[in-house]
Amino acid sequence: MSHHRVEVTDLAFSYPDGPPALDGVSFLVTHGESVALVGANGAGKSTLLMHLNGVLTPTSGVVRIGDVPVTKKTLPDIRKTVGMIFQDADDQLFMPTVYEDVAFGPMNLGLPPQDVETRVRAALEQVGALELRDRPPYRLSGGEKRAVAIATVLSMNPSMLVMDEPSSNLDPRARRRLIELLRSFEHTKIIATHDLDLALDLCERTIVMNAGRIIADGPTLQIFKDEGLLLAGGLEQPMSMQRCPSCGGMR
């Protein structure tokens, strides 16, 4: 049985005060895949992500992680398997110091103190933030916060990473570093993003959402070449695929 598989079938969800946020979403992500989830603001990306580890409960439809359906009973296992990285690192870093924040997940898993220590070290080393361990989160830069937020999830040894806008608010160098970091992970990845260049760099497959539905699902390059499709999804081609503004040629 592989934990690294996500199957979403006919998922529908409405917030109490609005029209359906998800309207019959289905897809399958298999072991080791990197999938970009793109679409305009309000297309339903974040809502979809929150169903993947059971933070939201669908109105109808099923989410399966591996062979396990996401239900109240399976939540502890699901949350161990699916590492969720939130859009605003300030929401993710709520403990007094970086160390305690990264240790939060492993402590809740009930690991013995030595194992917690090993995991925290390993996770912080992996994101290159070991020297930040005793700092309070509100004293970190945006890039550092993002790195630590990723470490807080890695320390739980998830099989899968689910990320919401990982490159937002980062300066170009921090963004580049993040891309390299994410590339080094072998986890199954689902990344919701407006940064189509990042999608092009990291994900071989892209899902385009619009108004709570999937309007396209296929190889990233192929989807990004279809300008009409991108336009329909409220997007535009990534910079690296647009014609050079000064000479009109392709890069």
């Binding site: 590492g83 969720m84 929401d91 305690e100 939060f104 809740n108």
Partner: peptide, 24 residues
């Protein structure tokens, strides 16, 4: 709103109502 998001992120990392602090 922030409190809601923080709570969700806590739940995602196995929060069960008790904050355990690592420092001995």
């Amino acid at each position: 709103d922030r409190a809601n998001r923080v709570y969700r992120s806590m739940l995602s990392r196995g929060f069960d109502g008790q904050i355990r602090i690592a420092r001995p």
